[in-house]
Design a protein around this nucleic acid. Structure first.
Length: 266
DNA sequence: ATGACGGAAGTTTTCCGA
């Protein structure tokens, strides 16, 4: 079983690349972020033609998230219960666990999230990011008791540590790299979630985002800010986690690359 | 270098992202 996350920076622009990628990588679940379109513009038919069902949560101009799945989902939730938010940032659904008994209600809870950017420490947007992270964690604490098999994936807009940063000195305490933000990632881990990427040996200087400017990708000046976190029950089933850099080489790429998790399905 | 690129809105420029 494979699950993936990809910030596409406008699904309207990137739809052909997403369809192409799905044909080459027929994952079971793909979480999309930054749709940048309203719900009425979501290309559900194009995904259905590729064999994917979809749940989506869009808005005009900014944000917007979706879950594409091979199987039907249940118990879909939009945004963070208990945290009032104008922005479409989170979509959650339960997918069947191929390992569980047929007809079992013991599914995998999948959360696709587009964390706030935060702009810079000291700004209102940074304060919003901190409040959003508080709200996310409070909800996740409960969600994990309901769903022991849980995946939290998306564009976190936070690096775990300096290994995730191409220029740790230059970016020290800059947005995505502050201790305040990293504290929140560690707090998610403390809830019982693991960074699946670091369960495995990875190529040095592995990133998931590169600035469009200044040939960021060609010079591998990037950040690892797209993550797939798994609960303990799924951690033991994790078999691989990789960044797929190839779509970043497309002619009009997203600035993010997909991250793919492979789970043992026995 | 409050820059560089790219997308959206919408109109020739601004906001935002990371």
């Amino acid at each position: 079983m494979q699950l993936a996350t990809w910030n596409v920076n406008s699904l309207g622009v990137r739809l052909p690349q997403v369809l192409e990628w799905l044909r080459a990588h027929p994952v079971d679940v793909l979480a999309l972020q930054e749709l940048k379109l309203t719900d009425d513009k979501f290309p559900a038919d194009a995904f259905a033609a590729e064999g994917y069902q979809a749940q989506w949560f869009g808005q005009k101009t900014y944000n917007g998230v979706a879950l594409l799945t091979r199987t039907a989902t249940s118990d879909v939730v939009r945004n963070i219960p208990g945290f009032a938010d104008d922005m479409a940032r989170v979509i959650t659904a339960t997918v069947p666990d191929p390992v569980a008994a047929p007809g079992s209600s013991d599914g995998i809870r999948v959360i696709g999230a587009y964390f706030p950017n935060g702009q810079a420490p000291g700004t209102d947007k940074f304060e919003y990011k901190m409040a959003w992270l508080d709200g996310l964690r409070a909800w996740l604490r409960e969600e994990l008791t309901r769903y022991p098999k849980l995946v939290l994936m998306g564009d976190f807009n936070i690096t775990f540590d300096d290994l995730d940063v191409w220029d740790p000195v230059g970016m020290h305490e800059q947005i995505h790299c502050t201790e305040d933000e990293r504290y929140h990632l560690r707090a998610l881990v403390a809830l019982g979630l693991a960074d699946s990427f670091r369960l495995f040996t990875q190529p040095p200087k592995s990133y998931s985002w590169w600035d469009y400017r200044d040939m960021g990708f060609r010079r591998n000046r990037g950040l690892r800010i797209d993550h797939i976190l798994v609960s303990a029950a799924l951690k033991e089933r994790a078999r691989a986690c990789q960044v797929d850099r190839t779509p970043r080489k497309n002619e009009r790429p997203s600035d993010h690359a997909p991250v793919v998790l492979t789970l043992d399905s026995l």
